[in-house]
Simulated assay, not measured.
Amino acid sequence: MAIEEGAVPAEAPAVDAHAHVFTRAMPFAAEAHSRPDYDYGVEAWLADLDRHGISHGVIAAASLFDDGNAYTLSALASHPGRLRATVIVPPETDATTLAEMADAGVVGVRLAWRRVEDLPDIAREPYRGFLRRIADRGLHVELLSRSASLPRLLPALDASGVRIVVDHFGVPSRDPEERGAGTDALCRAIDGGRTWVKLSAGFRMPFAIAAEVAARLLAHAGPERLLWGSDAPFVNHEGDIRFADTLDLYRRLVPHPAVRAAIDRAALLLFFNQESE
């Protein structure tokens, strides 16, 4: 049963590691696949976190918008202790700019390639240097890409030396063979020691698939390499999903409080460089 909206659940997550914040004043990217006609500003998200007892949050850069990360950076400036964020920047971005963003609370650079058919060769320039600069600044790559592409992308990213955070269970395919190959690639990357996977946006896939991938990752790597995120405000699913539903789904996928607490510890250490209390 879903948690009643407004009720603070027991054992709330410490970190929502994946949410998007935006306003209608922000320009859409030319290739935006959706165009929300409402605001979900940082204060609205923080109100959702407060309502559900969640202390920290990580903004995931939204590929829908083309505001040069201005709104995200302003949110970080307003809530420096509570929030971190990823950004979307071109591969030519220089080390000074990345360092300034890191100082502002940016923890990673998002590669939103889920809908990209012709993926770049990240072992060549400009990506080779870009990944080196990201790693040198202590940032991670936040990868959003389909499971079919993970066997190619993850070894190349790992070879670059950068830390990797994979969104949305690795966007598992409905095809069992393709999904299995993608999950295998996630497990191999985790074994390399620099990769984490978000159990986020589970509502965007059949529950059986989310449960399958979550169980495989937990069995292979344990909770120390997993993170949880709400994917608020649930773009294209706003009428079907409430924030409380994402918590209910998380508890169904990871039913043991001690395991969820270990996921909290991983998120606090990775994003906030702090131990949980």
Results as ranks from 00 to 15, higher is better:
Ala12His: 06
Ala12Asn: 04
Ala19Phe: 10
Val21Ala: 06
Thr23Cys: 08
Thr23Arg: 13
Ala25His: 14
Phe28Pro: 12
Glu31Gln: 15
Ala32Trp: 14
Ser34Asn: 11
Asp37Glu: 02
Asp39Arg: 15
Asp39Asn: 15
Tyr40Asn: 04
Tyr40Cys: 11
Ala44Ser: 13
Leu46Gly: 01
Arg51Ala: 07
Arg51Lys: 13
Gly53Ser: 11
Ser55Lys: 15
Val58Ile: 15
Val58Gln: 05
Ile59Cys: 10
Ile59Arg: 09
Ala61Gln: 15
Ala62Thr: 04
Ser63Leu: 06
Phe65Pro: 12
Gly68Ser: 09
Leu73Thr: 03
Leu73Lys: 02
Leu73Arg: 10
Ala75Gly: 11
Ala75His: 11
Ala77Phe: 07
Ser78Met: 05
Ser78Tyr: 03
Pro80His: 06
Pro80Cys: 08
Pro80Leu: 01
Gly81Tyr: 13
Arg82Ile: 00
Leu83Asn: 04
Arg84Thr: 07
Ala85Val: 05
Thr86Ile: 08
Ile88Phe: 09
Val89His: 07
Val89Ser: 10
Pro90Ile: 09
Pro90Val: 06
Asp94Ile: 12
Asp94Cys: 12
Asp94Phe: 13
Ala95Leu: 14
Thr96Cys: 11
Thr97Pro: 14
Glu100Val: 08
Ala102Asn: 12
Asp103His: 15
Gly108Ile: 00
Ala112Lys: 02
Arg115Ala: 08
Val116Thr: 15
Glu117Leu: 06
Pro120Gln: 00
Ile122Ala: 07
Ala123Glu: 06
Pro126Ala: 02
Gly129Ile: 04
Leu131Thr: 10
Arg132Ser: 13
Asp136Arg: 09
Arg137Ile: 06
Leu139Val: 03
His140Asp: 10
Glu142Met: 06
Glu142Ile: 07
Leu144Cys: 03
Leu144Gly: 03
Ala148Cys: 09
Ser149Val: 04
Ser149Gln: 13
Leu150Gly: 02
Arg152Ala: 06
Arg152Asp: 06
Leu153Lys: 05
Ala156Asp: 01
Val162Glu: 04
Arg163Val: 04
Val165Lys: 04
Pro172Ser: 02
Ser173Val: 09
Ser173Cys: 03
Arg174Gln: 15
Asp175Trp: 13
Gly180Phe: 11
Gly180Lys: 13
Asp184Asn: 02
Asp184Ala: 02
Asp184Pro: 05
Ala185Gln: 01
Cys187Arg: 15
Cys187Asp: 03
Arg188Ala: 01
Asp191Arg: 06
Leu199Glu: 01
Leu199Asp: 02
Ala201Val: 09
Arg204Leu: 11
Met205Ile: 12
Pro206Cys: 08
Pro206Arg: 03
Ile209Glu: 00
Ala210Cys: 14
Ala214Cys: 07
Ala214Trp: 11
Arg216Gly: 02
Arg216Thr: 10
Leu217Thr: 05
Leu218Met: 11
His220Asp: 08
Gly229Trp: 08
Ala232Met: 02
Pro233Gly: 12
Val235Lys: 14
Gly239Thr: 14
Ile241Thr: 09
Arg242Ile: 07
Phe243Cys: 05
Phe243Val: 00
Asp245Glu: 07
Thr246Ser: 14
Asp248Thr: 05
Asp248Ile: 05
Leu249Gln: 13
Arg251Ser: 12
Leu253Arg: 13
Val254Arg: 15
Val254Gly: 07
Pro255Lys: 09
Pro255Asn: 10
Pro257His: 11
Ala261Thr: 07
Ala262Pro: 05
Asp264Leu: 04
Leu268Val: 05
Leu268Phe: 03
Phe271Pro: 12
Phe271Ser: 09
Asn273Cys: 02
Glu275Leu: 11
